[in-house]
Design a protein around this nucleic acid. Structure first.
Length: 581
RNA sequence: GCACUCGUAGCUCAAUUGGAUAGAGCAUCUGACUUCGGAUCAGAGGGUUGCAGGUUCGAGUCCUGCCGAGUGCGCCA
């Protein structure tokens, strides 16, 4: 039987791609292939075979021959391959590859043995810092925060699965001008009882009260500024208050993270880097990047065609850009990462472009990536704290669980109450996460309850349902055939839908690689949905417990692979899969 | 004014980064449970990919210009 060795683990696309590339190099002059893309991709349609290579068409111009002729030539010099049944030249010059069904089946049997389902550990010895979620202290998390948290966490899980060392850092907004007002507000308006019961709500209330007072009371504002300066200079009393605000806020954030199944390796707010700010400025000045303008220190980025970037305010204070540069520097020193990835909304694109440009100018050699997503809006327009139309994240999670619980009670009335609640939690939270993860994030989202909590069609519950149904089949098999042992029987891909299922199963590793490389969990979500759909069709249209011995065992084995792939994939998206639903 | 992003079926979104006849879900319509879980399955209708040019064997994807929407642009983070 085939064994998958870790050190030579490859995706099928890579295996076929190397074979194809080899054939091209045998058939054609080297200089024509210099920067040709000879890769192999899954076929766009079943009738075009299983995989395809489109390289011949691109080479036609260079070689001044017809693409079909090139394809023929390449195929003629391609050696036989254990995976390949036959190839055809089709259309404008596509090379269509048809795989050997028995080879496919043997491969699935090997994948069954592998804990990572055939996925290569491409990230071994590499570190990635992920900067996501990053809420502001003393402000409640609202529905705008969920995308960063959920997408960031999925990227976290994807990279870990690929063997990367991941440093997930929750870069809290814990250092800024709001703390002067907050300290004043706390001293004059704080209600200790409310502060214990609903900390962030109370912090927000006293902040707003203090802010409002500062608008009409100059003395108040000046005093707030003095408190801020005292805090920044390390005044013990103000520092203690600041720490209290941070701790109270974190306690509430943690409650949400626990519900979402999100954990961080580090929670370092902006304050963590405050002692480095002056060094960063000094560095910028000594490199000749920063210059004085209107009393502030700025970096001009004309070469990059970006607006200038302020790195120190005219009052001597530092701002966001400097803080983020200090953060990059600190992370490079401590973790030597291959990449630092930021997950934020689209409004920060310019800011990060500026920061990344400055980092490049400083000669910092690290791959800086901004994964951005569109803003969430309400049907009636952009939401804002001022208009009071923010939807708090906790309310969204509560609502999701409530709706899911109603569904569970209806579908599984005999299930014990506590289990119903567990399932409802997994289904409700899963639905919310999937709604964010299943689409390319670069478009603005109009929030509606029904969309965020959809539980049919392309949704997490559909996938969870498929998993539960498979578990149920496996149980029934054990019940009815206690002597049966599917592992003793070969996998047979007799029905077309079984072959379709097999083709999807073997794609899992390349999909995971792609999702991580593009920083797009939606790639994985799409795949899982497609797999579950194919499985549902399989389930509905061919019998397995009633099939003859051998076929039955083969199908139970396929079920096992599907459920493992779905579970693993959903786990990488941070979505739970209950045994029953 | 400048910059970034988006515009695909009635609605919400895909389209493996330039590949073959643009695909799903929701909604609508027609079928399938005395049968392994119907939160399902089989099928139907629905498209000038915002508009106009251009690049090439080939464009939803790249370039130019319009139209529409969102976001950002020196002392917030």
């Amino acid at each position: 039987m085939e064994k998958i060795m870790e050190e030579k683990k490859k995706t099928l696309e890579q295996i076929l791609g190397e074979w194809m590339a080899d054939a091209f190099h045998k058939a054609l002059p080297e200089n024509a292939l210099r920067d040709a893309d000879l890769s192999v991709t899954p076929a766009t349609d079943e009738k075009f075979g299983d995989y395809q290579c489109n390289a011949a068409m691109g080479l036609a111009r260079v070689l001044k021959t017809s693409p079909r002729k090139i394809a023929e030539q390449v195929l003629a010099s391609a050696p036989a391959h254990e995976w390949v049944d036959r190839c055809e030249v089709a259309g404008a010059g596509f090379i269509n590859i048809f795989l050997r069904t028995d080879r496919l089946a043997r491969h699935l049997e090997a994948v069954e043995e592998d804990p990572s389902l055939g996925t290569p550990a491409v990230g071994a010895d590499k570190t990635v810092v992920l900067d996501y979620s990053s809420p502001n202290v003393a402000k409640p998390m609202h529905i705008g925060h969920i995308r960063s948290t959920v997408i960031g966490n999925a990227l976290d899980r994807l990279h870990r699965f690929l063997g990367y060392r991941v440093v997930a850092d929750n870069h809290l907004g814990d250092w800024g001008t709001q703390f002067g007002l907050l300290i004043m507000g706390y001293r004059h308006f704080a209600d200790q009882v409310r502060l214990q019961a609903r900390p962030i709500e109370e912090l927000e209330r006293i902040y707003v009260a203090s802010y409002d007072k500062s608008r009409e009371d100059e003395a108040w504002l000046n005093e707030a500024r003095r408190e801020l300066v005292k805090l920044q200079q390390g005044d013990p009393e103000n520092l203690a208050l600041w720490q209290l605000f941070v701790d109270l806020s974190m306690k509430e954030f943690e409650r949400i993270y626990r519900r979402l199944g999100v954990t961080f390796d580090l929670v370092r707010g902006e304050s963590y880097y405050r002692d480095r700010l002056s060094d960063v400025l000094e560095r910028l000045r000594s490199e000749g990047l920063a210059e004085e303008s209107e009393g502030a220190q700025v970096v001009r980025l004309e070469e990059e065609e970006l607006p200038l970037c302020i790195v120190q305010k005219s009052d001597g204070g530092y701002n966001y850009a400097t803080s983020d540069l200090a953060t990059v520097q600190s992370r490079m020193e401590e973790f030597a990462p291959e990449a630092i990835v930021y997950v934020t909304d689209e409004r920060q694109q310019l800011h990060f472009n500026q920061c990344f440009a400055i980092a490049r100018r400083l000669g910092w050699r690290v791959n800086l990536v901004h994964v951005w997503f569109g803003l969430m809006r309400l049907p009636e327009g952009t939401f804002s704290t001022r208009e009071g139309n923010v939807i708090k994240l906790e309310r969204l999670l509560d609502e999701a669980e409530t709706r899911a619980l109603a569904l569970v009670r209806e579908a599984s009335p005999d299930m014990p109450e506590t289990q119903q609640r567990d399932v409802a939690r997994a289904v409700g939270i899963g639905a919310i996460k999937y709604a964010d993860l299943s689409q390319n994030p670069q478009s603005l989202i109009t929030f509606t309850w029904d969309k965020a909590l959809a539980m049919d069609g392309n949704s997490a519950p559909y996938l969870q349902y498929a998993c539960a149904r498979i578990s149920s089949v496996q149980d029934k098999y054990r019940e009815r055939f206690p002597q049966g042992d599917p592992a003793q029987w070969p996998i047979i891909l007799g029905e077309p839908v079984e072959r379709r299922l097999a083709l999807r199963l073997i794609r899992f590793p390349s999909v995971v690689l792609r999702a991580a490389a593009l920083y797009r969990p939606s790639v994985l979500a799409d795949y899982l949905y497609d797999l579950a759909q194919t499985y549902s069709s399989f389930y509905q249209n061919v019998p397995f417990l009633k099939a003859e011995e051998g076929v039955r065992e083969s199908r139970v084995r396929l079920c096992g692979l599907v459920v493992r792939t779905l579970r693993q994939g959903l786990n990488l998206l941070g979505i739970e899969t209950p045994e029953r639903i």
